[in-house]
Design a protein around this nucleic acid. Sequence first.
DNA 1: TTCTGTCAAGCGATC
DNA 2: GATCGCTTGACAGAA
Length: 419
Amino acid sequence: MSIGYPCITIGVENTQQKTCRKRNATEEHLRTLIDHNLTALKNIIEFNAEHNIKLFRISSDIIPFASDKEVNTLNWSKEFSNQFEELGRLIKKHGIRVSMHPGQYTVINSPDEGVVSRAIADLNYHTLFLDSLGVDEASKLILHVGGVYGDKKAAVNRFVQTYHGLNERVKNRLVIENDDRSYSIEEVLSISERTGAPVVYDNLHSAIYTSDPDKSDTYWINKVKSTWEEKDGRQKTHYSQQQFNNRTGSHSKTIRIDEFMEYYNEVKNLNIDIMLEVKDKNLSAVKCILSTNENGTIKELEEEWSRYKYVVLERSQKIYQSIRLLLKDKNAYPVIQFYRLIEAAIDQIPSNNSALNAASHVWGYVKKEAKEKEKTKFKRLSEAVAKEESELKRLKNFLKQMMEKYDQHYVLESLYFEF
DNA sequence: TTCTGTCAAGCGATC
DNA sequence: GATCGCTTGACAGAA
């Protein structure tokens, strides 16, 4: 089983994707952006390899306006073929399975022909991107069924009809997913019967929208399994949790580990890949991978701790001490307790005092080298935080600048500036 | 330098 | 029929 995350990373240097506005999309500017984004992808792949993350969704925005031939006229696949080859080699070398997922705006069953032809162009773009990497058919392209338009039967028929007219290369990668308001898992399954497309089961969507709420996740995962053939690779699923107090269907900030482990224990023998849909992306992927690793070592937790420690200290001295104590036994691997404590800390809002405490720890990395003027500024900003919580952002921005100026990579690679 | 509004996409609910 | 909300991170111009 592989566990992965979509599109972007939190707290990993040089992995940020760039884009632009249509009106600024000159050929030259697009070239710069594509070059930048492919380099960022390479850095993401390397990060994933280092952290044993074998599943990753590539952002649809990686080639800006790729499916709009009037805006992006570049032959990017050919022009950047060297970078694509290198990326493909890297992906294969590390055994990473990549995928893509056009968003809610790519709709092939619309009654509007213009919408459909743009959607087809978009699918062609995604397919060309994956083909350019040289990855096999197990690298999938995930799509929702689309709209209902007041007549679901007709809408489904249009989906099936358009599907059959798609390029073979697209069809070889295309997978359909249940959504949370229009097409339930049972409806997607019946569309799969008519198209042959494999099905991705999404647990949260199904919890929100299904005609059969009594059926379990395992029931549907088993049911859907037969839509996956050998050439499609391992069955893929999407997993997410509801963010409390948000709109139904909102993805949680982080994967709550106890809830995940309950799910994992039910599905671990079903031979699936799990794509986590969650706001904190790679952080939850690493969390879930370490939590399900029976041969994990304390060293891996110590590495995690080095990234989280100031985030925790900023919120709770008590939890900070508890985690230090927890990691004392070098032969143990208390991974679940560790993440429970991290989650408990992140749930808290930093008080002025605890935030200042963490800030002064971080300041400690540079205070010897700092110029008088910088020391004064730190003092002034700290005093402001003591009076007014809203000033914390200003103080942390200043600290980040200082860490960059004095090359304090230990702090910069931590998550202190990400929370 | 920091903040706020805008972009880009299509559906569907609401007035 | 027109408008807004949904979603998302980053752009882009204002302050």
